[in-house]
Amino acid sequence: MMLASFGLRQAMIPAALGLLGLYLLLPRPSRIPRLAGAALGIVALVLCGRLIAEAAPATPWIERILFWAFSALAIVGAVQLVTQPNPARGAVAFALVVINVCGLFLLNGAPFLAAGTIIIYAGAIVVTFLFVIMLCQQTGAADADARSREPLLSCAAGAILLGLLLSLVGRQYDPAPIDELLAAIDKSIASDKPGFENFDHEFRKFPTHLPIKESLEARSDESMLKIKASKNDPKVVSEELAKFRAAVAAGRSRVGDIPPPDSVPVTPFAGSRTDHRLPAGNVAALGRLLFTDYIIGVEMAGTLLLVATIGAIAITYRSGRKPA
């Protein structure tokens, strides 16, 4: 279920292609065939999908299909928002993005958030935007909508940024060292003289961003002690090796995780720290968390909303003067 490993160079290719496509799609006075840009963008999306596709799919196919569909639609909507000269159509495209992102929310076990986002964003914010567009731009698309500010420079910056982000994800969640370790353990088990000596140095060379390194080291040291105590009893050796392989295989799904430091207070409302499962009953759990640990945040958010309301009225209120 992990991705194949990829580096900065691999990440840069789809990023550059995609942003080049975006560059071609951006509105400007001199027309460039939009089809070329769209084609480039699709190629980039496909490349990116290949990059992050699971090496050995372990996810149910329905979930995979939903993920790809939502993601693709969200990205297409986003491209449409960015490249659409007409702000009204842009707003509608944004609504599309929001709906698809909410689909992704659902896949991530956040139904309340999905509903809330659709209501607030697609329902309220986008509609308000449309109202403003109708108030301000009744004559149709303005000159400025057909132009872009520094498109080449912006797209280049965007490409570099995207490449960097992708490569960071690729590096952080790179399963290659663990896969090699597993292969070495399997080889050791299969060999006629099993033991830790054959692969011990492997995981001790792990980069520090693999958080399982320390726990594996502790596990290995414990096994070595046991084996030494039993004077290299082959039975004990194979038992310990099996235990160690299970630990490594379990750790493989947590690659790239950064365990929170001990100084972070543990709260029971947010969910268990160890089994990595969201609490059942999303709305109830979220409500419990909001009104216990984050009560101050909730209060402040409410105050902020009030202040923003008053501020918006104060900004637009004009006494005795008719709107021009």
Binding site: A15, G18, L19, L22, L26, C48, I52, S71, A74, I75, A78, V79, L81, V82, Q84, P87, G90, A91, V97, V101, L104, F129, V132, I133, C136, A142, A144, D145, R147, S148, R149, E150, P151, S154, C155, A157, G158, L161, L162, L165, L166, V169
Partner: peptide, 22 residues
């Protein structure tokens, strides 16, 4: 990755588009 793509698209749009609402 999907989040990063959305973020970068938004950023590029913010840099290039001229309409305040966009």
């Amino acid at each position: 990755v999907v989040g990063a793509i959305l973020f970068v698209l938004g950023a590029v749009g913010f840099l290039t588009r001229r309409n305040l609402i966009t």
